[in-house]
Write a protein that binds this DNA or RNA. Sequence first.
DNA 1: ACTCGTGTTAGCTG
DNA 2: TCAGCTAACACGAG
Length: 272
Amino acid sequence: MPELPEVENARQVVEKALDRTISDIDDHDEYECRPHRPGEIKHALVGGRLTAAHRRGKAMWCETETADGAEGPTLGIHLGMGGRVIVTAPEGEDSSDYGGGNAKIGVRKKDKPEWTRFSMSFDDGGQLRLFDKRRLGRVRLEPDIDALGPDAAEITREEFRSMIAASKAPLKARLLDQNAIAGIGNLLADEVLWQTSLSPSRRSNSLSESDADELRRVLRRCTRSAIRKGGVHTGEIIPYRNADSNCPRCGAPMKRGTVGGRTTWFCSKEQG
DNA sequence: ACTCGTGTTAGCTG
DNA sequence: TCAGCTAACACGAG
């Protein structure tokens, strides 16, 4: 699930964990906490607290403060292919606004306790947990955020134009390149390309400036809409990403291919 | 049993 | 040299 909109919703959940004293951390999962050794993250953060939650593209990170009030290491959280963050309320407090009961971002019925790959306990009895059955998510100290391109929801028109013009890779592959523009995943890429009727395999630098401007407008609109509705799966073309579907705009069959190494669905007529 | 996948990245290639 | 591509990652779901 996690593309930019899901991660933004997760970031808002993490804000519920700010300014609560960290009493314990379980960081024993060797995959999720790579490259750290078990106990390393725990040692760095116990006694301190998270003071701010940020996001760029699909990457999240928290600023921290140590027990004596000094600046602590940043804590990066990446959800990978299927991670979710859960923050529970202080013991005895109403949990209704903590996201814990929200199936879109919180606990789901089929979740197994062992899919909790990382957890942080607070001295108020609450917890921050990372749920990730596939273990492609990551929790790490001092993540490199600067390597990412501009956030897809914030990128300026000039930045977007030059990013598009700077590569001859297939357009969809360019949109998926997190170092060029951060936050677009496979579904959001299919959605914006269908909305603009642009071919996924067209060379990125073959777009005109007005094509690029239109693509950026649609990208911003789809991103905002997905954040509001709860995720990229709420996109218009997503239900039509299968072999039996026809383009809801022109009626031609939807077609499956591979672009940028990812399954790609597009209108065989309008995006051919 | 076997294939697929809403993300990232090391390592290969032209 | 380096942009671009592929396979691998880990593991549940269909």
